[in-house]
Structures are given as C-alpha cells and as structure tokens.
C-alpha cells in the first residue's frame, strides 16, 4: 500500500481518471471492462448489462473473476466507492482506473443515437 500511494503523482492520478468518452473507446477496442461495485440489488434495479458486478465488500473474495490482461474501470453512481475499489485493485496488482464521471454521467452520455457509440454484441 505504501509504495502504491508513493507512486501516485499528478500524472498517474490524471491518467487513472477515465471519463465517459475514454471508457467507450477503451471498451470498444476490447482493452477495458467496466466493474460496477454497487451492491447486487442496486445493480438489479438499474445497471448496464455489459458490466461486471462485484459489490465493493465482496471484492476481496472475488478477485479471480476479474481479467488480469484488461483494464478494470471501476464505477459507481458518482465516484466514491469506485475510488476505493480502484485503490484496492491496484494494490492487488490489477491495472485499474476510475470512471470519474460516474455511471450516471455515462448513462447520460449514451442518450439517443449516441447509445450506438458503444459496441455491444
């Protein structure tokens, strides 16, 4: 944890904050997945079906469900829980980033014809 925190210079912090457009590009090219760290019932009420849902408190027990060769973009409605998830995953050796705009802004971005910008099979 200490060495991870020391590594966080301004460049890293900026680089690890992903907005909606960055995410859509990374997802379409297959280099990233979206991890929804809300509780299961929250994900059921409304969720983006293409996301992986692992609640923050289950993350330590379910790390093996995450791909090691992809960027894990952590997300929650804003960026409170996703921030914690990102720190945890980075400490565990994953390449993790934060959807800093939050799920709500990503959903807003996928409005009207722009929903087609995201390539879902």
């Amino acid at each position: 944890m200490d060495s991870y925190i020391r590594s966080l210079d301004m460049k890293v912090i900026v680089r690890d904050n992903i907005d909606a457009d960055d995410f859509i590009a990374m997802y379409n090219s297959g280099e990233a997945i979206l991890l929804d760290v809300r509780y299961g019932f929250e994900h059921h009420v409304w969720g983006l079906p293409f996301t992986c849902n692992i609640p923050l408190n289950e993350l330590p027990d379910r790390l093996d469900e995450l791909p090691k060769d992809k960027i894990i973009v952590c997300a929650c409605p804003e960026s409170c829980r996703s921030n914690i998830a990102k720190q945890y995953l980075c400490v565990k050796g994953f390449d993790a980033k934060i959807l800093s705009c939050g799920l709500l802004a990503l959903m807003s971005r996928l409005k009207g014809g722009k929903a087609k910008d995201l390539s879902l099979e």
Binding site: H44, V45, W46, G47, L48, P49, F50, M107, L110, K111, G112, G113, A115, K116, L118, L120
Partner: peptide, 13 residues
C-alpha cells in the same frame, strides 16, 4: 420510450 439501443445500454428494472 427510448430507442432499443438506449434501453439495451441501461434501464430501470
């Protein structure tokens, strides 16, 4: 009443 692509991206249960 959004388009089906929008609904596929996310929707309320």
């Amino acid at each position: 009443i959004r388009f089906k692509e929008e609904y596929a991206a996310w929707h309320i249960a």
